[in-house]
Simulated assay, not measured.
Amino acid sequence: MRCIILEDEIAAQEILEGFLQKTPFTTHLGTYESGLDIPPEEIQSADVLFLDVQLP
């Protein structure tokens, strides 16, 4: 599964990135603090989006 992380807190980013590194069937496409930073082609190729519940 191709995964994207959208999270503004560094600690939460690190936890999710660590989880993805330990999970053999996932590919981490990128980590972003704003949805506007994610390239459209990356969103289209992702299977899973880890999304923060409260973003500014």
Rank of each mutant, 00 (worst) to 15 (best):
P24Y: 04
Q54S: 11
L36K: 15
I5K: 00
I10C: 03
T27R: 01
D8Y: 07
V53Q: 14
Q13E: 12
S45T: 14
Q13N: 05
Q21T: 07
G18N: 13
P40H: 14
D8L: 03
P40M: 14
E14I: 13
A46D: 02
L20E: 01
H28M: 06
G30R: 00
P39Q: 15
Q44F: 12
E17V: 03
P56N: 04
K22Y: 09
L49D: 06
E33A: 15
I5N: 03
L20I: 00
I43Y: 11
K22T: 12
H28Q: 06
Q44M: 13
L20R: 01
L51P: 06
E17M: 00
C3M: 03
F25L: 13
G18E: 12
I43H: 10
Q21N: 11
L51F: 03
E14V: 07
I5Q: 03
F50H: 02
E9T: 08
L29N: 04
L20V: 02
A11M: 14
T23F: 10
E33R: 15
M1T: 07
L51K: 02
L36D: 13
D47F: 02
I38Y: 07
K22N: 15
D37R: 09
E33L: 09
F50G: 05
L49P: 04
E42D: 13
L55M: 13
A46H: 00
T31I: 06
I4D: 00
